[in-house]
């Protein structure tokens, strides 16, 4: 029998956003990454194929991480002492983007140096996170923004308490911003409004709706992302930014991923469980609309990239 498949026709679409700038546009990237542009819910090819695949970012730190799982430290080995080499390796294993997380211990000139050395070592676009304390974020991200003028970095993480200085620095130097709100559709919209009211072009904002890890609140993130994406397709301009989420950070915070001994036997092999934890968190968020997933473990990167390739073909 001939079937008539019900199709949604949406008036709105996700904004197209490009990260990184090549020499011709005033940067030094050999690759740029474009995300967004969807006119349908995730991977519903029978309505409209997504024009761009989602991107996989790998998170590295300016200094050797102190609270990371031993599995992560083992996987990256000596590289954690050398952000440039670490970033290069991440690019080699398939990262579309690098996230460089600065720490509280960094001084402004150190932050600038590490950003520049990572830029020199890699060709992919760069996202730079401050350490997450408003004052320190401003102290580090402003000089970084100036030193990397024209690179179309993504600067983060803007929250309602500390977005002004970061947005101003991004605007003045041709960068993008990552706007984070705690799992709430209205808060996402509000922060987007505040940031665009400062004069930031909308195609330089990436929303971070925040998520929880598998087992630790992922269902809230999942549904908030679906609702944000539906709102975007319905034409709400303030929800039309592409979305970035941090399954690597969230998953590796859980006991399941962090701890290898003294846990229930029913949890199974530590390493496989941890990688599954990160990978499954990431894939679930991709299904609900993530445009960038930030990961930590090399094998998860390969698995998620393979999955994205499959999701993009139907």
């Amino acid at each position: 029998m001939p079937l008539e498949i019900p199709k949604d026709k949406w008036p709105g679409s996700v904004r197209t956003v490009t990260l990184g700038a090549a020499a011709a546009e005033g940067g030094t990237r050999t690759k740029t990454v474009t995300i967004g542009g969807q006119t349908a819910m995730p991977y519903l090819h029978f309505e409209a194929s997504p024009p761009h695949p989602p991107a996989v970012a790998v998170e590295i730190k300016s200094r050797p991480p102190e609270d990371w799982s031993p599995l992560l430290l083992e996987a990256w080995g000596e590289l954690v002492n050398d952000p440039a080499a670490w970033a290069k390796k991440a690019e080699e294993i398939g990262a579309d983007l690098i996230v460089l997380a600065l720490t509280l211990a960094d001084r402004p000139e150190e932050a600038v140096n590490v950003v520049q050395s990572v830029l020199r070592a890699t060709g992919v676009p760069l996202i730079v996170w401050g350490p997450g304390q408003a004052e320190k974020d401003n102290e580090l991200l402003v000089p970084v923004a100036e030193a990397a003028k024209g690179e179309r970095l993504v600067l983060g993480i803007c929250e309602d308490k500390n977005y002004r200085t970061i947005v101003a620095a991004a605007m003045a130097n041709g960068h993008l911003v990552q706007a984070r709100t705690p799992m709430d559709v209205n808060l996402s919209k509000q922060l987007n409004i505040l940031i665009s009211d400062m004069g930031m072009p909308k195609d330089r904002i990436i929303m971070d709706p925040t998520t929880g890890a598998l087992g630790y609140g992922i269902e809230y993130g999942y549904s908030v992302m679906e609702r944000l994406r539906l709102a975007a397709l319905q034409g709400d301009a303030m929800t039309q930014s592409p979305m970035i989420v941090t399954p690597g950070f969230e998953a590796w915070k859980t006991k399941e991923a962090k701890v290898g001994s003294g846990v229930p036997e029913a949890w199974g092999d530590w390493k496989e469980r941890s990688v599954n934890w990160e990978t499954i968190t990431a894939i679930t968020l991709l299904e609900s609309g993530a445009d960038i997933v930030v990961l930590r473990y090399p094998e998860s990167v390969a698995r998620v990239k393979q999955a994205i390739q499959e999701l993009m073909t139907a």
Partner: peptide, 20 residues
């Protein structure tokens, strides 16, 4: 049967099927 796969899947199932 692999606990290291089963456990995360069982948890995902609980999460997705929780009443929002």
């Amino acid at each position: 049967f692999k606990p290291e796969l089963l456990y995360p899947l069982l948890v995902l199932r609980e999460n997705i099927y929780t009443d929002p």
